Simulated scan of single mutants.
Amino acid sequence: MLGSIEAGGTKINCAVGDEQGNIFKQVQFQTTSPDENMKQIIDFFLSKEVEAIGIACFGPVNIDRQSSHYGYSGHSKTSLEILSIFTNTEREIEYPNRTSK
């Protein structure tokens, strides 16, 4: 199974599916605070056995792994501008096909 996260200024979508585009489970919640939203994302994926997670996020997103702001989105008017989806999902969710390490 594959996971996906689409983080926007008003809502966040998470889903698990397969390579053929079949969606087996999905959730949507309002964009609120970094702490609340990361908990919702982590809670959704913890019980799923995903091989990889794709992340779509408003941007630009800092993808420089050497930067202290790696994974942060810099141009948002919401509280998610300081949220590091990349590093939080890497730390909290185990999946075998990480390309970020």
Score class of each variant (00 low, 15 high):
22 N>G: 09
91 R>H: 11
87 T>Q: 11
66 Q>E: 13
18 D>F: 07
45 F>L: 03
68 S>N: 11
36 E>T: 12
51 E>G: 09
78 T>H: 10
29 F>Y: 07
91 R>K: 14
4 S>P: 00
3 G>K: 01
89 T>M: 14
14 C>E: 02
48 K>A: 13
9 G>M: 09
16 V>M: 06
90 E>R: 10
18 D>S: 10
70 Y>G: 08
38 M>A: 04
45 F>S: 02
90 E>C: 09
9 G>V: 02
30 Q>L: 11
33 S>G: 08
79 S>K: 15
24 F>P: 01
61 V>T: 13
25 K>R: 14
22 N>K: 15
12 I>R: 03
63 I>F: 08
19 E>L: 15
82 I>L: 06
76 S>H: 05
14 C>M: 02
30 Q>H: 10
16 V>I: 15
19 E>Y: 13
15 A>G: 00
31 T>L: 03
26 Q>E: 09
87 T>P: 02
31 T>N: 04
54 G>A: 03
75 H>M: 14
15 A>V: 00
56 A>F: 11
51 E>Y: 04
45 F>N: 01
16 V>E: 02
63 I>H: 07
28 Q>W: 00
35 D>V: 10
18 D>M: 07
80 L>M: 13
3 G>V: 02
72 Y>C: 09
64 D>W: 07
56 A>Y: 05
6 E>R: 01
74 G>Q: 12
90 E>N: 04
85 I>E: 06
76 S>L: 14
5 I>S: 01
64 D>H: 08
93 I>Q: 05
6 E>W: 02
11 K>F: 03
17 G>I: 01
48 K>S: 11
81 E>G: 11
26 Q>A: 04
3 G>M: 01
12 I>S: 02
92 E>P: 00
101 K>E: 10
64 D>S: 13
17 G>K: 03
67 S>E: 08
4 S>L: 11
57 C>A: 13
10 T>L: 06
100 S>V: 13
42 I>T: 14
72 Y>L: 14
52 A>W: 00
13 N>I: 00
36 E>C: 02
78 T>V: 11
34 P>C: 08
34 P>A: 07
10 T>W: 06
96 P>V: 05
15 A>R: 01
86 F>D: 09
99 T>N: 12
41 I>F: 01
78 T>K: 11
92 E>N: 15
